[in-house]
Amino acid sequence: MSLNSIVCIKSVVLSAPDGVGRRTPQNSDLNPFDRPALEAALRIKASLGGSVTALTMGPAVSIEALAEAQAMGVDGAVLINDPSLAGSDTLVTSRVLAAAIGRLTPYGFVFFGTRSADSDTGQVGPQTAALLGVPFVSGVKQMQPASDDWDITRRMDEWEEVWRVRLPAAVSIHPMAFSPRPIPLAGIAQAHDHMKVQSWSLADLGLPADRVGLAGSPTRVANLKKVKRQRTCRMLDGEPREQVEALVAYLGTKGLMGS
């Protein structure tokens, strides 16, 4: 059994811009939450065969995120880049990705990171799955073939659930679950010297311009400003044991520590 996987990745902005930021290679990087998703897909390929394709929608600088995916070992890379995509919200992003995935059939799994490090919505994975009409499991830590189906373990705070799904399906990978492989230097040379990125425009996807970008987006960012978090210092009184108990109780009520 061989399996073709698609990993949706994003080139994220490293530092929060004031207002609308210009994307440069220096302030962009592959979304760190996408690396475990690439790793999960590559491990399935290593055990079952098949192929892994990295897919991204974004400005031209996103090609550097695809190159990193290639250096990790993916077989193909697709960049969806079109001027009319500027201003797309998560729904449009999902619509565009779903249209692109429709061109990459047949596939078994579509992988996502749980969220992006810059906009942090976690919406694109589940929305894309809904548009494709395929099952979606989030926060996945393990994937096992089970006869015709797959057993997918998802992890929450102190729980694990196992879902049995039939392919094709979509998953988002828990950030702690699949430790991404270190990239070999030869992979970097290979990825750049033999770059094989397919570039698709809206026309290739058959999507009209008014369904994408700002025009097609039901939401838009009205304002963006930096927030300075207030830091407070609270002194604990009493003997060390009492101080520790007070600290543990406080962290428990804040949900930062299990009870």
Binding site: Q26, P182, L185, I188, A191
Partner: peptide, 14 residues
């Protein structure tokens, strides 16, 4: 170039 930037990030992370 982009190759060197990816190299720097990769080597630094390692």
């Amino acid at each position: 170039n982009p190759k060197h930037r990816l190299l720097r990030r990769t080597v630094r992370a390692f």
